[in-house]
């Protein structure tokens, strides 16, 4: 099994030599994940693009870790030659910090950055583009932050059809048919 992960391990070693990684591991075949300080983002992206030939910028997304007070931003790169997804993660404080703008490396990153700026309120240093991107006339806190309580907002703003309020958690019932159990982590998000 280990010999099949040769190229992944090699990539990780190269990255470890070159940068001070906070952590790095091979998740599975064709997927490598590294965590890095946010000052190192531009160097590692440029290194991956120019030296390692990770020319395709697949995606960029954001997760709100409200307990730590941090946003985690993930850059996903793809190399058509190596056929490896390289996930580069970094954390940034929810308030007061910003990330460098990378749309001079990949032009299309501009779209993702504007979306993250709008949906999470995370500023990017030197990002050019209209403030309003997808949302129109939005004056609440950014909607994808976890301290934005969607249920409250919906019940305040929109109308609710009668008969909708008894929406029950039917997962137990559905699982009961096949003798499965609801896992603990799922119970946390139960509606009841």
């Amino acid at each position: 099994m280990t010999d099949t992960l040769n190229k992944e391990n090699k990539l990780l070693e190269v990255l470890k030599e070159e940068f001070k990684l906070l952590s790095g591991k091979v998740k599975r075949s064709r997927r490598v994940e590294v965590v890095i300080e946010n000052e190192q983002i531009i160097p590692i992206l440029l290194f991956a693009k120019e030296r390692l030939n990770y020319i395709h910028f697949s995606h960029m997304s954001c997760v709100d870790w409200i307990e730590e007070g941090k946003f985690e931003v993930i850059y996903i790169l793809w190399s058509p030659e190596e056929k490896i997804n390289l996930l580069i993660k970094t954390k940034v404080a929810r308030e007061g910090e910003d990330l460098p703008n990378i749309d001079f490396i990949w032009r299309q990153a501009n779209t993702y950055e504007r979306e993250i700026r709008e949906m999470y309120g995370l500023p990017f240093d030197g990002l050019v583009g209209r403030e309003e991107f997808i949302l129109e006339d939005w004056d609440e806190i950014p909607p994808m932050r976890r301290d934005f309580i969607t249920n409250e907002y919906v019940s305040e703003t929109y109308f609710e059809r009668e008969g909708r309020e008894d929406a029950k958690d039917v997962r137990e019932q559905i699982l009961g048919r096949t003798d499965e159990k609801l896992p603990d982590f799922a119970k946390k998000y139960s509606r009841d």
């Binding site: 949302l135 907002y153 919906v154 929109y158 109308f159």
Partner: peptide, 19 residues
């Protein structure tokens, strides 16, 4: 359009069109 369907608790979709 009737009651929001699967997007009933979304921050940007309306729930009752006839309002």
């Amino acid at each position: 359009t009737i009651n929001g369907g699967m997007y009933w608790d979304s921050y940007n979709t309306i729930n009752m069109l006839d309002k």
